[in-house]
Amino acid sequence: MINVLIVEDDPMVTYINSNFLKKLEGFNLIKSVDSIAKAKESIKELKPNLILLDVFLPKGNGIDLLKWIRKEEIRSDVILITAEKNIESVQEAFRYGAIDYLIKPFTFNRYKDALLQYKERFNKFKNGTEIEQKTIDKYIMSGNTVEQKIDNINDLEKGLSKHTYNKIWDALIRWDRKHFTSEELAEYLGMARVTVRRYLEYMNKNGKLDIVIEYGKVGRPQHKYKMKKV
């Protein structure tokens, strides 16, 4: 179980965060606080695994709290959930180890993607003593392919998540496979095959991928995907 502390001074946002969290298995909200001072006390006392942190707080700033957490060598991960869009604040958050940054107002799908990706990484790291490069690569977003990401596609189909799309696209860039099936990619990502296939079909429809049909001697033909050269 992942213990979560919410640091947020807006009661409505706290309510939304806590209700979203209840919809996700594996997370336990241990407390919600509305100030830097209360946050420091709760962090020392409760030692949360994950902190959902606002930037704009009474008598303090969430980024300063993040710096304090790192200075004190506290082993808590932090996701920023804030209306702050200033690029310097975003960069500073990542410099001090924030694992994600959600800008208000955020959707449940984006929130869910952030929390589930964190849970996957948390459980993977918790249950082992060594880790392979390909596992690390699953949790590191590539910064070299921004022009190919979903930000440049205006009409994302209903039910698809921008965050999940970008996660799959970044994996394809890193994976270096000439042809692949949805099953192979799903196993690599640790995601459901039906989910991965839906995104691959969307990428194919939007000209990002080609579909190659391979006919074997026995059984149904196999649909494989390949990235188009750009």
Rank of each mutant, 00 (worst) to 15 (best):
V13L: 03
F20P: 05
W175Y: 14
L115Q: 04
F20T: 07
S32L: 13
V230Y: 10
I2W: 02
K158H: 13
N86Q: 06
M191I: 14
Y15L: 15
I69R: 03
K22R: 15
K149N: 05
R95S: 09
I74V: 06
A192L: 13
Y225A: 09
L21K: 08
K124R: 04
V90R: 12
H223Y: 05
A114N: 04
N127K: 14
G26N: 01
Y96D: 00
G60Y: 05
D54V: 01
N109C: 09
K44V: 15
K224T: 09
M141V: 06
D54Q: 04
K158S: 09
E201I: 10
D100N: 04
K134C: 15
P221F: 06
E130Y: 13
I16D: 02
V33N: 00
V146Q: 10
K40Y: 02
L209G: 11
N61E: 08
R174V: 13
R70A: 07
A83F: 06
V7I: 05
E73D: 15
I211F: 06
I213M: 14
P58F: 03
V55A: 11
S89M: 07
D10M: 04
N28S: 05
Q91V: 13
K59R: 05
L156K: 04
K104A: 02
E88G: 03
I150A: 12
Y139H: 05
R110K: 09
I2D: 07
N154A: 06
V78L: 02
T145N: 14
Y202R: 04
K67D: 11
E157W: 13
F27H: 07
L57P: 11
A98D: 07
W175N: 00
F108I: 03
N61W: 00
T181P: 02
N28F: 03
I36E: 11
K23I: 11
G26W: 03
E184Q: 15
I153L: 12
N61P: 02
D9L: 00
I173R: 12
K124C: 04
I136C: 08
D151N: 09
F180N: 07
L209K: 10
P11E: 02
K138D: 01
I140D: 02
K226F: 09
K178A: 10
L50C: 01
I63S: 05
G190K: 03
Y215W: 08
N49G: 07
G216P: 02
G97L: 06
F27V: 08
N61M: 01
W68R: 01
N206Q: 13
K208Q: 11
L50G: 01
I103R: 01
K104F: 03
Y225N: 01
N154R: 15
K138G: 07
K23N: 11
Q222F: 11
D137T: 01
R177P: 01
A37Q: 09
K217F: 10
G143P: 01
M203A: 05
I6K: 10
N152S: 13
R193G: 15
L46A: 07
Y118E: 04
Y202M: 15
F180C: 00
T107S: 14
D155M: 13
R193S: 03
A98C: 10
K126P: 08
F94E: 03
K59H: 12
R220V: 14
N204Y: 15
R177Q: 10
K44I: 14
N109K: 08
I43N: 00
K208G: 04
V78R: 00
I103Q: 01
I173F: 12
L21V: 02
D54S: 00
R220N: 11
N204C: 15
L66E: 15
G60R: 07
V55T: 14
T129A: 15
